[in-house]
Design a protein around this nucleic acid. Structure first.
Lengths: 341, 341
DNA sequence: AGTCCCAAGTGAACCGGTTTAGTTGGTCCA
DNA sequence: TGGACCAACTAAACCGGTTCACTTGGGACT
């Protein structure tokens, strides 16, 4: 059926070992012999069996990604599909595949890593949604799985990080809103257990301070539309409602904008709104959403490349990608002079 | 290091073969011996190596999914993440993993399948987004990869199909709109090269005919927000604009709704809008979107189960899942009496 | 009592690669 | 001219399972 190393060796009149040496560019065969072997291998259409290679080299030739999200909400997050596509663009050029796991809870996530390790499914993983105190770092060390993290964890991590700074974008948004005359700028953030949830809040806070504005309202939400709506309701129902709300993603911003409009508020005349992600939909809302344009595709591509480098034995230094930039659209405008503002 | 079958055999005082028989429930060992072997294996914490099993059994213990979408638009599609999560819920209970590939073009997609086959990465695949004349069916047969398709292809297919009928939902939407007095009901569909794009259009057409309404406007779009907006612009700019538009997914519907509102039209007073998918966001729009509630999680779970059954040698009969049902929200209402209507 | 048969279990081959230990033949140098 | 040394290569072991061919011992049947 399929052609094996034995067939090639026989056809080339050499031993299996010689074929192996020739293919892997090792010493042990002369240049002439090597060329002949490779020629024969090419003619026979030999593709070394990954399974056999895997067994003797104890490698899986695959990398893993464990996505920890509520499956029902996963579909609303535009990050992962694009990120995965980015990973693929790197892997497709190498003899590596992506093994994807979806975990609904923290326990399921740990189990997923343990299963990947126990079954030897992957040679390394990419760690996303890094948390403030992230037990997965220690877990991966225990399991001896090489990894790359998205952004550098706050706790010590032996793994290289691929960083895309999200503070610049938020800072720019705050600066922009201040320049439009806003002074009551609220922030609806993601869970503060995530470092990206936290860093966005801190960026907002710091930018406000730098602008001489104190005490902006903050609500910790959950990156879902439902959460965005609930947070918006709280903010708009307060004694001193904000004139601008910075959401930590487009989904919450979209829900918030719709809710504000349903109350009869005009966006941006009564309330400015910004998101984060620059999802396709953001362009086509009414009004189109001012947001921050991340590049998950690039992030995935570079993270996968970094992981492959790491598996190849390269030095593990952090990589820094360009900061996502603000995209100004019609959901932001001059601050209305509100009573008490 | 890790414990192997040899260690277990030695500890139990039997041969490797006996351990293999015991573990796999084959005849060749007595009940007593079997129990003893399993006990020893448990004590030693032996996990048979997937790689070794794979080599001798020529299996990958993995299933594949090739997602053919523009990576930049993939993130807007709520179907895949939930579908994949569904697949996972099945796989996690078995010794199977999911290998995911993203392909940006048709050629890349074929290459992806060929690569999966050549590398022996997967034992079977799930075929989504079945096309009207789908060359992948023949390709998979050529590559000898077992498969399960989502819905039954129109061309002969040897693979079992996991079907979720989408015509009922569309029919119900048309019926509902007619009951509200609408007679000019347009449809913005997906690419007609997809069977689900086509079947939704046919369902709309048939339902209109049954209601005695002729010649509803149809625009073939592409499931993207941009496409939804463009189609809406054409429809609303026509001589006899519709009083209701049925979109083939929520994303197009959302963009269409926003566009209509940006023209000053009221939804649903001037224009009723419906989507398909029941994405999380649909609930939180202004107005909330009437849509059709598919269950991609269930679909994924059942498809994966069906594929595993198939790999296990089971009979391959089609499976039929409940039809997605209409979810009525505020984006639909009584038809306005429009000039010429 | 002898034959047959089957369950129970062993040893080795096998899957398709990699790697190690060992063999061969040629060159260099004293 | 003989020993040292090295490049080039082979044979076999190895990775960790599965499976085939074969042996052994006990019970049933004649």
């Amino acid at each position: 059926m399929t052609v094996t190393i034995k067939d090639v060796a026989h056809a080339a009149g050499v031993s299996k070992g010689a074929v192996s040496y020739a293919l892997n560019g090792r010493p042990g065969v002369s240049d002439d012999t090597r060329a002949r072997i490779l020629k024969v291998a090419g003619e026979l259409g030999w593709k070394p069996s990954l399974r056999a290679k895997g067994l003797s080299s104890a490698k899986a030739y695959a990398v893993g990604l464990v996505v920890a999200r509520n499956p029902l909400l996963l579909g609303t997050d535009p990050f992962f599909p694009a990120f995965i596509a980015g990973i693929e663009t790197t892997l497709v050029e190498h003899e590596y595949a992506l093994v994807l796991t979806v975990a609904a809870s923290d326990e399921a996530e740990e189990q997923a890593y343990r299963k990947l390790a126990a079954e030897g499914r992957v040679d390394g993983v990419i760690l996303t949604d890094v948390r403030v105190d992230d037990s997965r770092i220690a877990l991966l060390q225990e399991l001896k799985i090489p990894a790359v993290t998205l952004n550098r964890p706050e706790t010590p991590s032996p793994f290289p990080a691929v960083c895309m700074d999200d503070t610049n974008g938020i800072t720019d948004v705050v600066t922009y809103l201040v320049s439009l005359g806003h002074t009551r700028i609220a922030h609806v953030g993601g869970p503060q257990t995530y470092i990206h949830g936290r860093s966005r809040r801190l960026a907002w806070q710091n930018a406000l301070s730098k602008a001489g504005i104190e005490g902006g309202a903050f609500i910790e939400s959950d990156f879902t539309a439902a959460g965005g709506l609930a947070a918006t309701a709280v903010l708009l129902g307060s004694a001193q409602p904000p004139t601008a709300i910075i959401f930590a993603n487009d989904l919450m911003a979209t829900a918030g904008q719709s809710y504000a409009q349903s109350l009869g508020l005009a966006v941006p005349d009564d309330l400015s709104i910004t998101g984060y992600d620059n999802t396709e939909l953001a362009t086509y809302l009414n009004p189109p959403l001012t947001t921050i344009s991340a590049d998950p595709l690039l992030w995935g591509r570079v993270a996968a490349q970094k992981l492959l480098d790491l598996l190849g034995g390269a030095r593990s230094e952090d990589v820094f990608l360009p900061s996502p930039a603000i995209v100004v659209r019609a959901s932001t405008g001059p601050a209305a002079s509100v009573p008490g503002g």
